[in-house]
Design a protein around this nucleic acid. Sequence first.
DNA 1: CCGGTTAAGTGAAGCGGTTAACAAGCCGGT
DNA 2: ACCGGCTTGTTAACCGCTTCACTTAACCGG
Lengths: 329, 329
Amino acid sequence: MTIREVADAAGVSPAAVSYALRGIQVSEETQERVRKVADELGYEANPIARALASGRTGMVGILGPSLEDLWQQRLVAEAGRCLLDHDRYALILDAGGDPLRQRALATQLRDQQVDGLILSPVDPSDEFWSEIAESLAVVSIGDALPGRGAAGEVLFDNRSGVRCALEHLHALGHRRIAVLRPPGSPTNDRPAEVYVGSEADRLGLDVSVVSAPYELHEATGVARTVLTADPRPSAVFAFSDSIAYGVYAAARELELRIPAELSVIGYDDHPVSMLLAPPLTSFSWDAERLVEVAVGMVLAAIDGQPRRRRRVVIEPVLRERASTARRRH
Amino acid sequence: MTIREVADAAGVSPAAVSYALRGIQVSEETQERVRKVADELGYEANPIARALASGRTGMVGILGPSLEDLWQQRLVAEAGRCLLDHDRYALILDAGGDPLRQRALATQLRDQQVDGLILSPVDPSDEFWSEIAESLAVVSIGDALPGRGAAGEVLFDNRSGVRCALEHLHALGHRRIAVLRPPGSPTNDRPAEVYVGSEADRLGLDVSVVSAPYELHEATGVARTVLTADPRPSAVFAFSDSIAYGVYAAARELELRIPAELSVIGYDDHPVSMLLAPPLTSFSWDAERLVEVAVGMVLAAIDGQPRRRRRVVIEPVLRERASTARRRH
DNA sequence: CCGGTTAAGTGAAGCGGTTAACAAGCCGGT
DNA sequence: ACCGGCTTGTTAACCGCTTCACTTAACCGG
């Protein structure tokens, strides 16, 4: 079923069909007639041919650092659905935590496939990303993109999250705290290293920052090491709920009771976090809104609409549950 | 950067470049020379043009019933990564639990986009799927596909899972059991309706089957209803861990202690299930192997290789943890 | 030395759309 | 009657790659 057959059936030229189906150039009545014929014939434009001719594929790439993370899985699933609602497909890739791979995949996507790109946090000092953003509609989720090319940014106020978490633990009497952050490029550590450092100084806390992978078993391993250190931290702040789950697993192995002997705070507030024993204290974002905003931004940029707000900052909300408690001697 | 420029630079025809880069038709030395030139120029074939000309996109669709389910999220993430390892992209869609939508999406994918399709269980009585399987490399995960066209099937031995779950509960003294199954088309209920029915008869159990969505809050609602029925079931078998989580949430609300007052068995054994309070008894599948097998089957079918084994049955393994216990009066 | 087979490479016609350039028809204005 | 401009529709040149049909040259046994 090609455009030519429709054209013959409708008694017009292929070009007219092309125009008519997109509602431009030709008269209302021709549009109507062509549409009817196309319907009857069950014709639908071949997206591949369309992409080749027009240079637009209708696909949006979603490139996250690692789909091991439950929250990112959720975000991505949500984004896929949201894009589908707008008649676009999501091409979902993940870099498996490797920044180089992330760059390579982004290049592939740009050069040849997608109209837009939704990125999870990338190394903000890497000029590469500003180039990507110049040549493509890029929306960044989490952190700002270097340069001025970004079509949009949905930022997490990590500074506020960090402050809030540490203040919370401080108020509960904790002084020795371990922070587990996801792996990433060394320069992408602002929240973990800088915010944490300055807040710790301000509050007079003894904080150590350790990198931990998202994957449950590996995270458990790291947590085990952290929790068997001497002296042992009385509280752990994990920069992702997935990592916090690893802390739970390690605590169970070591027979450390949460929160009596160990306080834990997560980050992201995945739905199942409230079901753990004890329910995990975590920071919650409005994930649906977040995704909608991000998707809206890419689509607007793809369609060349100027956007009023190119930057949205999302505030974390501390969901205080039962995994944190006053420190005991 | 087009094939023509490479051809000029290498002093051959565009056709020769096309052949050379795919390692066919032209001599070794020409291949080598062209490859070198292409590398220097940083050329990579445009997949869109290639797709249009060759009729193959290099993409594999993954179509699941609902990405609300954590386990499916995980499967899909895994499959995406696995495909990427084979230089193919995954186009991930979910039907949101609607069989009609699932058909519509499958049609779209087939007509115009993908070379292969990985499907989660579909209505096996629907001839539509056998047509799809005729015209495309389709691998079904979970249930068999109607017709003989499937390129592969990775089946879950649900019958054995159901039997094992009910026997386990029976042995613990439970007689009144609620089974929560995911929503689906009425004819896709074999495991839930048929297996459960016959096993229940055999064991002399009083079993009621209820449909429950994957989404945590909605599942909680259904579970609440089930758990406030009179008489109340002493055990629940949920056909997905995600749904079991809803049971946990409802039990907590109703202050029913698990497993003292309520036994719960899940299905799929998601990694976090062992972290719940109490750790969830569930059925585990070898997810990585499952995905690898499925992906291998599509790729083989796409490349037209005859496959020895077109059907693999995966046995569930009961992971007995702390959410089931002997029934007390 | 010759017809026949094979290997290597070329040319050009697509794949199924989009879009720039252009033609035809119709209008009102001068 | 003529011209410019607007609307509607057509023609044909792509988009970048694949692949069929074909030419050319090398090779072979007899």
